[in-house]
Computed example of a mutant assay.
Amino acid sequence: MPGLTGWRAVLLVHRLHFPLPLSYLAYAWWGAAFAAAEPRDLIGGPVLVTVAATVLSLLAGLALNTAADVRTDRHDRDKTALTGAAGRFGSRRIFGWAAAEAIAAMVLAAVVALRLGRWAVPVVLAAALAAHLSYNLEPVRLKRRGLAGPAVFGAGFLAVPGMASYFAVRPALEASMVPVLAGLCVLAFGRTTWFSVPDHEADARTGIGTPGARYGPWRTLLVSCGLVAAGLLLLGAGLWWRYGAAWAITGAVTEGAFLAGMTALAGPRRSLSRMRELATPIVLLGDLSLVAIPLLAG
């Protein structure tokens, strides 16, 4: 791709364009925020190492996805820069990066486990990495298996990894965290389904049975909105249990605000791609709220 520098290509392969890196940090830190008794708990040594391990696991999953999806993404006009970056290095090298990042993540998680005696930390990250492998690679390749793909990807990328930093602060899961985690998993399922809709033409053209390719964009959007609503209800219930009604409403509003991107579907110039573009910056608001609400409410 003309003018694409080496570092810019590396960043694109790992989806590190603004505002996504801030969201990745939020995914890695939200568990510690919910577990912390005071703000300084978020910057303890084991937590910082766990956050670094979690971010590495997320980057490994993104690089793996880039390498696995090159053939499909070449048919997507919105991903010209991404395929250009992938073409600069080749799938084999990107797979190698993903493997190295995953190994580094597990080594750091093991260090934390040995330091604290909490093996839940590497178990959480191993589960997240297993989700990425099953989503991207044959013979499982859940991306081509309808709604199973976004369910596993959403949980393995947006929700579950944050629990690693939770266990770096607390040794056991509090009961009130169950609806919070369940809500985030369902919300991530709906959000991943929603964000995948603009890719439905490229997926259908290359035989990838994503929900958008199988059911069409409008039915998929309807399903995804229902999932988002269910996730917000569960998350709100958990936040209400922990922090009260006002914070539950705040969390539900900030986490659901990305649906405002559907305004791009109104009028004669409606566009699915524009829908995603409008929603991406708003998503950061919800991601940051996961870290902010426990700290402000506490």
Rank of each mutant, 00 (worst) to 15 (best):
G3C: 07
L4R: 11
T5Q: 01
W7C: 01
R8I: 01
L11T: 06
L12A: 04
H14N: 06
H14A: 13
H17Q: 15
S23E: 12
L25A: 14
L25Y: 07
A28W: 04
W29A: 14
A32G: 06
A36L: 02
A36R: 03
E38D: 08
D41G: 04
G44D: 01
P46R: 07
V51I: 14
A52S: 14
A53D: 03
T54E: 04
L56Y: 05
L56M: 13
S57I: 06
L59I: 14
A63Y: 05
A63L: 04
A67F: 01
A68P: 02
R71D: 15
T83E: 08
A86L: 10
G87I: 07
F89M: 11
R93W: 07
I94N: 02
G96M: 05
W97I: 08
I103N: 00
I103R: 01
I103Y: 00
M106V: 15
M106E: 15
A109I: 12
V111L: 14
A113M: 10
A113I: 05
L114K: 10
L114E: 13
R118N: 15
R118I: 13
W119A: 10
P122Y: 05
A127R: 01
A128W: 00
L129K: 11
A130D: 01
A131S: 14
H132W: 09
N136F: 08
L137E: 11
L147E: 14
G149M: 11
P150M: 12
P150F: 10
V152W: 08
G154Y: 12
L158I: 03
P161C: 12
G162M: 10
G162T: 09
M163T: 14
M163R: 07
V169S: 03
P171F: 04
L173W: 05
L173H: 12
L173N: 12
E174Q: 13
A175H: 10
S176D: 15
M177G: 02
M177D: 04
V178P: 02
L184D: 03
L184I: 02
C185I: 15
C185A: 15
C185N: 11
V186I: 13
W194L: 09
W194K: 03
V197A: 04
V197G: 02
H200F: 11
H200Q: 06
E201R: 12
A202V: 01
D203H: 02
T206M: 10
I208E: 11
I208V: 15
G209T: 09
P211S: 13
G216Q: 14
T220G: 09
V223G: 11
S224I: 02
C225Q: 11
L227R: 03
A230T: 08
L232Y: 04
L235E: 08
A237Y: 13
L239D: 01
W241S: 14
Y243N: 03
Y243V: 05
A245K: 00
A246E: 10
W247A: 10
T250S: 12
V253D: 06
V253A: 15
G256N: 03
G256Q: 03
G256L: 06
G256K: 04
A257I: 13
A257M: 10
A257W: 07
F258T: 10
A260I: 08
T263F: 05
G267R: 09
R269G: 10
R270T: 07
L272C: 08
E277R: 11
E277H: 09
E277N: 02
T280A: 13
I282V: 15
V283G: 00
L288N: 06
S289D: 06
S289K: 04
A292L: 12
L295D: 05
L296I: 13
